[in-house]
């Protein structure tokens, strides 16, 4: 009978274990420090991205068919709802225009060239999602060639969904806002309390009810349910004024300090097909 572990196999196993831990730590450290991964990694990722794009076409066709059928069934209800929204939207748009031009004039008078709310946009399609149950990451089809850089913010129509964590030539990885791993960078956000603005960080994600947790609060104030939460622009990486979600509850009031605000994210991070990458001007 074969021995379960021959000494040669044991040596190989130990060497592999050491190599594995070493490689993981080394690449993880490099990933958080370097703007782009190593050349070999970039090339292999670009090759993979190309293959993925080719295979995505028929796959998206199949997926698109199912969602089209679903959309068709919802059309009537949605149409009614949208009609009611369109009227309101028109007036908001006009008002927005007026405010925008007024804002520009005021900025000119104050000689403010670039503020925290100015940004450029890059549109991208989602190639795939990381097949992992302990990491929430997307891979999108735009990379450094399109001007994507590390740490740019990523939004969909409804709001903020994450930030760029790795850039290759033709694709990049997006770390979702719901990924609150040890190494994930935190988003600086703010919410209007009854008396003052409260600043904090997105500190976690509750998988059970899909709610974000906002911690490290700077002030103690009453917050109404449904108050919108925006990025604060503090920290200098994320632009100001990106919509994150709505407050659902405030929990953990130990010693009178609201230690955590629960947020219903505006964007559903589970069904993202296209994103916009935002670059601060």
């Amino acid at each position: 009978m074969r021995k379960f572990f021959s000494s040669r196999n044991l040596v190989i196993l130990v060497i592999c274990l050491v190599l594995s831990i070493g490689l993981i730590s080394a690449t993880a450290a490099m990933r958080s420090r370097r703007a782009r991964p190593t050349l070999i990694q970039r090339v292999s990722n670009d090759v993979a991205g190309f293959g993925n794009t080719v295979l995505s076409v028929p796959a998206n066709g199949v997926g698109g068919f199912f969602s089209s059928v679903r959309d068709l069934l919802n059309t009537y209800q949605e149409n009614n709802y949208l009609k009611s929204r369109v009227h309101r939207l028109n007036s908001t748009e006009v008002q927005n225009q007026a405010l925008k031009s007024e804002n520009q004039q005021l900025k000119k008078q104050l000689k403010l060239n670039a503020t925290l709310t100015d940004y450029n946009k890059i549109n991208a399609t989602v190639l795939n999602r990381t097949p992992s149950n302990w990491q929430q990451q997307l891979i999108i089809n735009k990379g450094s060639l399109a001007g994507v850089k590390k740490n740019m913010s990523v939004v969909v129509d409804q709001g903020l969904v994450g930030r760029i964590s790795e850039v290759n030539a033709t694709n990049s990885k997006v770390e979702l806002i719901t990924d609150s791993g040890d190494d994930a960078s935190r988003f600086a956000v703010q919410v209007a309390g009854e008396k003052q603005t409260i600043n904090g960080l997105i500190s976690g994600y509750n998988n059970a009810n899909s709610e974000l947790e906002m911690g490290n609060l700077t002030a103690n104030d009453k917050i109404k349910k449904g108050t919108p939460v925006m990025t604060s622009g503090l920290g200098g990486i994320t632009p100001k004024g990106l919509y994150v979600g709505k407050v659902t509850s405030v929990s953990g009031t130990a010693g009178g300090t609201a230690s955590q605000i629960n947020i219903k994210p505006a964007a559903d991070t589970k069904t993202i097909t296209a994103v916009t990458v935002i670059e601060k001007k």
């Binding site: 592999c16 594995s20 831990i21 993981i24 690449t27 990381t130 990451q137």
Partner: peptide, 13 residues
């Protein structure tokens, strides 16, 4: 590891 995870050395071994 390289394409999906972003850190090398996990599934490689």
């Amino acid at each position: 590891d390289s394409y999906f995870i972003g850190v090398i050395g996990i599934y490689m071994f």
